[in-house]
Design a protein around this nucleic acid. Structure first.
Lengths: 226, 226
DNA sequence: CTAGAGGTTATTGTCAACAATCCATAGACT
DNA sequence: AGTCTATGGATTGTTGACAATAACCTCTAG
């Protein structure tokens, strides 16, 4: 993302971004079957670039496409959401460990600074789940890139986070434990600052595990219907 | 992969498969800059479906595309290959654990049967690294799908394995320890058969870790130049 | 002789028309 | 009345031509 600014923003890139945010934000409901011409008029595109974008989105698993039958936004069950967190647990655990070994001192300082910002944001906008979610995303984003593991960052940022965020927007909650999460974040950063990769991995895994259990519980309570 | 056979095999799918195997087999060298018309004439395609396939391959990280500058096959450094194994370690560890919890008895029987087949193949074709590699791929493939974790299987089968196989073909070795690997495979399957997820995860992680160290050593010895 | 600027060319990005395929509706048969 | 079949319509897949952009080569100046 922060690699090199794309000189020319091609129409296909535009289509890709538009569709991706539309899916993530829920403007395109999951399971919704949608025509190509419909999408073209909606985003002011022609079918060429659109189809290219559709191909990319399909291979990222955000939508499915049956030949001659149209595209539909992927609809993920509650079970599959849980599975997503299981994957995050091991992958972000690895990211935290490698981040502890490889982040620069400056990156760690920045990470600490963002935590302070998040804390203020939470206090100011009490209960505004949106800010909490954004801060959470920022935190995990920095650790993923800090791992210096190109493919790992690519898989986390390009695949998993978008799917998770899709649910974040839809459920708007799933957070519900802002201060607790912040404390866990702090301890992870501490471990990274001390260059203790093993501990960072352990704490990160436990952090995501807790988030998973939180969601699981809410689903069982019937608060979250998916 | 074994979901539902695609009724109509679209040209874009064809292009995607052709290009993917070409990249994996090394017919398209990494770093090689290649034009679209060149590719069209090579695979008897038109540019429309080709571009769609290129988009898919780009988002899977097999090639990079600069606007107006053409596509080039991704060239991965030795370090990045090692990183790939680090990712495999945690992800396949998870896959093994979930496979132990969820595979049907029949799937486990099949898994055992394939191991026997592999053993015979190794004995027959002494040193033929190719067969060993194929058997190894089959083993990991089965466990990934056996995890019943859709996204996990998708990421392993759709992303990681293709990149690893790309190197397998190029180096043709990287195996070099056929019998040892087979023994490790057997122990993993035993753990799965006993429904011991924790042990299966541990053994799988150690298995991939050993493979990584094997490659790392060969790179240091200068046997593998990437 | 080297470095930079400008034009040319080839390659990529985009578009609109054509062909192939599936879905739905209507009709006929059991 | 229900179900199967066939035809029409709409939607997707494909194609080739057109426009825009960047790379390359040449020419000039220092």
């Amino acid at each position: 993302m922060s690699e090199t600014a794309i000189q020319t923003y091609t129409r296909a890139d535009e289509a890709f971004d538009c569709l991706q945010t539309a899916i993530v934000k829920g403007d395109l409901a999951p399971g919704e079957k949608i025509g190509e011409v419909e999408l073209c008029s909606r985003f002011n595109l022609t079918r060429g670039p659109l189809r290219e974008a559709l191909g990319r989105l399909e291979s990222r698993g955000l939508l499915v496409r049956r030949p001659h039958a149209g595209v539909k936004v992927v609809s993920v069950s509650a079970d599959e959401l849980i599975e997503l967190y299981r994957i995050r647990e091991v992958m972000e655990g690895l990211a935290a460990r490698q981040a502890a070994e490889r982040m620069t001192d400056e990156e760690i300082r920045d990470l600490l600074a963002t935590l302070d910002t998040h804390e203020k944001m939470i206090e100011e906008a009490q209960g505004q789940a949106y800010y909490q979610a954004e801060g959470d995303y920022d935190f995990h984003h920095r650790i993923a890139t800090g791992s210096r593991n190109t493919k790992l960052a690519q898989m986390l940022l390009g695949d998993l986070y978008y799917m998770v965020r899709m649910y974040r927007y839809r459920l708007s909650t799933s957070a519900g434990r802002p201060h607790m999460a912040l404390g866990e974040h702090r301890r992870i950063v501490e471990a990274i600052a001390q260059r203790d990769g093993e501990l960072a991995e352990f704490l990160m895994k436990r952090h995501i595990n807790a988030a998973r259990q939180n969601i699981e519980q809410k689903i069982q309570e019937g608060v979250l219907t998916i």
